[in-house]
């Protein structure tokens, strides 16, 4: 009996040990509560993406790590929900706040769900900022804004209009989104509809279909849409999974050049489609700079060099950045085309 339970304990030890092995040398901060500021205390900085495991966020994290290394006094931890669940994101924010974070930078996957947790963290004295996507009012101090939801949506519609030949061209288009309930995508869709209905375009939106963050489903949904609506001339793939899925469907149907696909994704995953013309433009921004700026803003808040009411922020190697109200502006969205995509590798 004894032998068996001993064996069991060893096994548990191994299981937990494997866990330890997965993480080289205790990266986590050693439970320093906020307010225990010492001489050279590091700023504990949690960078929370909407979903971990997306190259988009990984490339942002690269930039953030570079900023942490440049500053020297920032202990950066990058973690978010692997499955992109807003509830889990909220739970993680609560954990980080309890653990003694100084700054939590969140890209809220669903501002409504994550909002209360962010407010609670602020009550605990944690500096909460948003990056990549904004949260609800008074849940954060600053928003590091690379592009508003409106700018992203308009940018996608405008590139589609331009690539199809101008504002007077009329054609059918469809959107392949992530989940029907995906908060960010739904805001973009609202703005896209607004732009499509305006005089800037003659495009006619025939369908919005979910791909449930499954590239294969995005692929088959696009195949079906092409056949069910033969007049479709353009697809918007508005998540980093649905974009390559939709582009692949168009390419395999032999419609490269006839049907255009555009959307949001990192250059690497779309490179081959841009090169063969299935995709003319990929809308994005400089992700590494976004991560870099986020860390700088958070650190400045924690050390008191940035506070509400500032109009300009010195972002080191990025130069001076404009502060509008409670938003630090990174710059415009970028459009990658055949000519420029070769210069980027992320």
């Amino acid at each position: 009996m004894k032998k068996r339970s001993g064996l069991g304990l060893i096994l548990v030890g191994i299981a937990l040990g494997v866990g330890c092995g997965g993480q080289p040398g205790g990266e986590g901060p050693e439970g320093a509560a906020p307010g225990t500021a010492g001489e050279d205390r590091k700023v504990t900085f949690y960078l929370v993406p909407k979903k971990k495991g997306l190259p988009y966020f990984s490339s942002c994290a690269e930039g953030a790590r570079a900023a942490a290394a440049a500053l020297g006094n920032v202990e950066l931890i990058y973690d978010g929900p692997t499955d992109g669940s807003p509830e889990k994101q909220a739970a993680m924010i609560e954990t980080f706040a309890l653990k003694g974070a100084d700054v939590i930078a969140v890209s809220p996957n669903d501002p409504d769900v994550v909002g209360p947790a962010m407010r609670k963290a602020r009550e605990k004295g944690v500096h909460v900022i948003t990056w990549d996507a904004d949260g609800v009012a008074d849940s954060r101090e600053f928003f590091v804004n690379q592009a508003t939801a409106q700018a992203i949506a308009y940018g996608m519609v405008d590139t589609m209009v331009r690539d199809l030949g101008g504002a007077e061209v009329s054609a059918d288009v469809a959107i392949v989104t992530a989940y029907l309930t995906a908060a960010n995508q739904n805001i973009w869709i609202e703005h896209m509809k607004e732009r499509l209905a305006s005089s800037a375009s003659q495009l006619n939106l025939v369908a919005v279909k979910p791909s449930d963050e499954d590239q294969k489903l995005a692929f088959s949904v696009t195949q079906d849409l092409m056949k069910a609506y033969p007049a479709i001339k353009g697809f918007f793939g508005i998540s980093s999974v649905s974009f390559p899925g939709a582009a692949e469907a168009v390419r395999q149907a032999g419609k490269t050049g006839e049907i255009l696909v555009t959307g949001l994704a990192t250059p690497n995953s779309m490179r081959s489609y841009v090169e063969d013309g299935t995709v003319k433009s990929v809308v994005l921004w400089n992700t590494a700079e976004l991560g870099y700026l986020t860390v700088l803003v958070g650190e400045a808040l924690a050390t008191g060099t940035l506070s509400a009411g500032a109009t300009e922020f010195d972002a080191g190697k990025l130069g001076k950045k404009k502060v509008e109200g409670d938003q630090v502006i990174l710059g415009d969205i970028m459009v990658f085309t055949k000519e420029t995509i070769g210069d980027f590798d992320f």
Binding site: G19, G22, Q23, E27, G28, Y46, K52, G53, I77, D79, G80, P81, T82, K88, M92, T95, F96, K99
Partner: peptide
């Protein structure tokens, strides 16, 4: 998640 802050773990 408290100790390692790695969701996949």
């Amino acid at each position: 998640s408290w100790r390692w802050s790695r969701d996949e773990l």
